[in-house]
Amino acid sequence: MFEARLAQGALLKKVVEAIKDLIEDANFDCNSSGFSLQAMDSSHVSLVALSLRADGFEHYRCDRNVSMGMKLASLSKILKCANGDDAITMKSEDNGDTITFMFESPEQERLSEFDLKLMDIDSEHLGIPDNEYDATVKLPAAEFQRIVKDLSTIGDTVEISVTKDAVKFGTTGDIGNANIMCRQNKAADKPDESTEIDINEAVSLTFALRYLNSFAKATPLSTHAVLKLSKELPILVEYHIPEVGRLAFYLAPKIED
């Protein structure tokens, strides 16, 4: 059987809220090392990769590898019934056709159980190469969210250019154009506000803003978003979930035909 208890149930709520508009349904894969998901959006332009480590759970048991297909909209409906401070336990019997979500309030005076029907989902599993990236930018997650939101009001795509000291986000649209530059800033007294750039080579790539806006829904999970870029490769946008794992998004670049 599979059984996993997350004391900070809010994390699971936030993860599902971050991905439910991007992917319709997905297989959640559980094995002894943890709980993970890999899924492409419906237009196959981006990829979501979630991994929650077994040791990030308060209790974790997985007797055999299971893949549980769920509709994200349904999962979201159920998780919305959990309070932000509830602990969430997921349970499923081997070969079962449902997964049970149990919500416990902090004082354990309220206990609720919701069963979600599992579904068979055919999904293509992609092999993500372990790339060395040309540039890595770690910036406050809220800042990244604001940048992609603001630029979306002007254009549809963003050119992200990283140099040694700064990262520049630029867009062009019918009404004009916009550029936002963030300088490296390793403020030791305010680590949550730091912007750090690690670069092997200057890089400049163009991406559809619609997807980056969708990725930014993961903002509540982490203080920082980490962007990893290499010439003519998908961007990796990572949100580290402290002590538990990470939620990562890959987006194919726009490339001149």
Partner: peptide
């Protein structure tokens, strides 16, 4: 113009 490629064209089936 700039084309949008699929993510699968970068990451092969694994």
């Amino acid at each position: 113009g700039s084309g949008q490629r699929s993510i699968a064209s970068f990451f092969g089936a694994g």
